[in-house]
Amino acid sequence: MAHNRVKESCSDQSVYYLVTNRIAGGRMLFKDQEKQKLKSLLFAGCTRFSYQVIDYVFMDNHFHLLIKIPATNEMDKIELLQRYRLHKKNEEVKFINSTQREEFREKIHDISFIIGNFEQRFVQWFNKVHSSWGRLFGQRFDSEMIEVSAHSDSLLRVMAYISLNPVRAEIVSDPKDFHFCAYSDRLAGGDIGKSDHEFFDLFCRGIEAKDIRDKQKHFRQVFRAYMLGLRRYQSVDSQTLAEFFREVNLSEQLAWDDLFIHKCRFFTKCLVIGSEAFVRNKLTKFSAKMKWKRVHEPYTEDEWNDIYSLKPRRRQASAD
């Protein structure tokens, strides 16, 4: 069974999660048709529940999602009722009382309910199309809470980890050429990047922007430079980016930065990713829930640019 989750229920702030799951037995069952269905279901769920897709990639045997759960108080009663009716497939149904309304509000802001519904719908479709039955995914999905702030480049690192999946798999040399990832959607002007202006304010200090679209463009430039190895993003400006891209020979296969570091299980087998202060805060808050018998500390490596993780409880080693 997968480890316990660290989940926040926040009325006044957004929460971000990296979500991962794999097909049982490592089978390569996600072809183009399956990946397109996964993508369709993922974005369709945004209208019924309360989440936003920040990043995603669908590979042949697994997927990664970066999900933003907005603050619960951002949704008024009218919008909440609309989503309830969509969920119930009934345009006239109403909440019985305020308790039912608030329970539904909490449910559609819960990462377990959101991803559980997404996976269930896909498995039902998959079994019907392929005349199969039983479990498709190997276990419960993994989820890590991600710090999104100016104090840590955790968001950029997690996005790079997601975007570089098809590069590590040697499917493409540049993620912009992989259809089933958010990076190519961003460059095509899709809805996936509609929150990028918020990240501009965190990671593009020193760059001037005229409007939201300009902020989105600059953030995408900074993110691409980050994937390529530019570590000066804290003080980056338009000239720094221009100089950096002139140094990169885009006519050759891109030498993506620290692929091995991006690949490590640091991202998908922990509970929290962020600055040391962020991880310690969650450690203090959730230690009792985890019922750990040994002391846990934020974990990092020299190459991780002061990004820390909170590792789950280790399983006992097998006798053999």
Rank of each mutant, 00 (worst) to 15 (best):
R85P: 00
I146W: 00
E119P: 14
E103C: 03
N90A: 04
I146N: 08
F104I: 07
F180V: 00
K94I: 04
I78Y: 05
L155R: 03
V158T: 09
V93P: 02
V172S: 06
I96V: 05
E103N: 06
D76S: 06
I78D: 03
R85W: 00
Q139E: 15
I96E: 08
R135N: 13
V123Y: 12
L156N: 08
S132Q: 14
S132E: 09
I162R: 00
A160T: 14
F180C: 05
H62T: 13
S154T: 05
M159Q: 15
L80M: 07
I96H: 05
C181I: 11
V172Q: 05
R140H: 13
E92T: 09
E74G: 06
S152K: 11
E170D: 08
M75G: 07
D60W: 00
E170V: 11
P175K: 02
E119R: 13
F63H: 09
E170C: 12
R121W: 15
D177Q: 10
F95L: 07
M75S: 11
F104M: 04
R85A: 00
Y84T: 03
K89M: 07
L80T: 02
D60P: 03
L80H: 02
R157Q: 10
R105T: 02
V148T: 08
L81E: 02
F113Q: 09
N117C: 10
I78Q: 06
F178M: 12
I111E: 06
I67W: 07
N97C: 01
S163Y: 14
E170S: 12
N165Y: 01
P175F: 10
E91T: 13
S154R: 03
A71Q: 10
